[in-house]
Design a protein around this nucleic acid. Structure first.
Lengths: 192, 192
DNA sequence: ATGTTCTTGTGAACTCTTTCACAAGCCTCG
DNA sequence: CGAGGCTTGTGAAAGAGTTCACAAGAACAT
């Protein structure tokens, strides 16, 4: 909307642009203050700035990727991340064939440099794209290196202390969700 | 658990294996019948079979990937999908350099064969890994081809009729969520 | 000025989800 | 066989999240 030069936007417009309701948009925003203009809507540029600060993206977040396999390296070249305020600084892998290379401009370092480089590069978020078997161990090392958040692509649950935020992305889990919805819409549940 | 040969599992064990509570596990399962054994727990093998049928995964679901770019092709070789009941049958791309090849054993076909092959191969779920600009158009074509569900990696909202189930995966959105949690844990919200 | 038309911000009502807590049932052991 | 130790299934209570609905304010035309 900023690019399109729009000045104002109503909660109703925001709602159908994002698949929710006008009341929801207003309630949610009101949690962070009341910066709409009655009778007018929200000032687009101010709203953008407010959301940026609410999300903590006034400055780009520094991100590292651990595991330069299929998913890991796909992420290294993902433009969408840069444009939305995340900078992928460095990647790590255990495979000597991958270490030392640069993938989409991001250097791939060996695992023994992990703690050192996370600290030296001021990494705030680690994307975990390792095999599930080592995910927990990497999570431990990352935690002790003082990283603030982990986004894990490993399905396995991670045991962490409360000092960092953790989120999961699991393609198979989402597909299972779809499969459930599809079954519910057609058959209902089939007896085993 | 099946592999480990466990016979029975309690709601409490399931809960800490999956980051929820025992009561939640029991309530959820009870929606689909009462198949636990009082004083014992749930029979592992029966539970597996029940979940499989609840999720509609008694037979593997047939999946196609549209867009063989970075994310698309990473998914084509993703073992986890196969092991969890999804078969990637075919992929599509618009780029002539990619069309005709086989990536991780999956053939990449041109976009003009889309509708025909989705129908011929009995595809139930499409994973959308195209640039956002064409996501809506592909979604329309996929819908009319009678597919039952879409998993979209494009951030843009898709307009679809109620005939299919749609889910989104958005890495940047998850990172924004993490960034918010990190900010909330440290600074609180910073003024814009 | 005044009336009309918008749209926000927000208590209150409502709905949905989670947690509590306990009767009912199964198993083992003395 | 009966007591004791577990664990499910589930109403009822508590807690979250969403929607309603309307007063308050802003712009604009007359």
């Amino acid at each position: 909307m900023c690019d399109r030069g729009a000045e104002l936007v109503s909660s109703a417009e925001l709602a159908d642009g994002s698949g929710t309701t006008a009341a929801q948009v207003r309630k949610d925003l009101s949690n962070f203050g009341s910066f709409g203009k009655r009778g007018q809507g929200y000032a687009v540029e101010e709203l953008r700035a407010r959301l940026e600060s609410i999300l903590g993206l006034v400055r780009p977040r520094r991100v590292a990727v651990v595991g330069a396999g299929k998913i890991g390296s796909a992420l290294l070249g993902y433009r969408d991340l840069t444009s939305r305020g995340f900078e992928i600084i460095v990647a790590f892998d255990i495979d000597p064939d991958k270490v030392g290379r640069t993938v989409f401009g991001v250097p791939v370092l060996p695992m023994n440099e992990l703690e050192h480089r996370l600290a030296a590069d001021g990494i705030e978020i680690v994307i975990l794209a390792t095999p599930p078997a080592v995910a927990q161990e990497v999570a431990n090392r990352v935690t002790s290196a003082g990283v603030a958040g982990i986004l894990s692509f490993a399905a396995s649950k991670l045991e962490t202390d409360g000092s960092l935020a953790v989120r999961w992305m699991d393609v198979a889990l989402e597909l299972e969700g779809l499969s459930f919805l599809i079954s519910a819409a057609t058959n209902g549940v089939e007896e085993p």
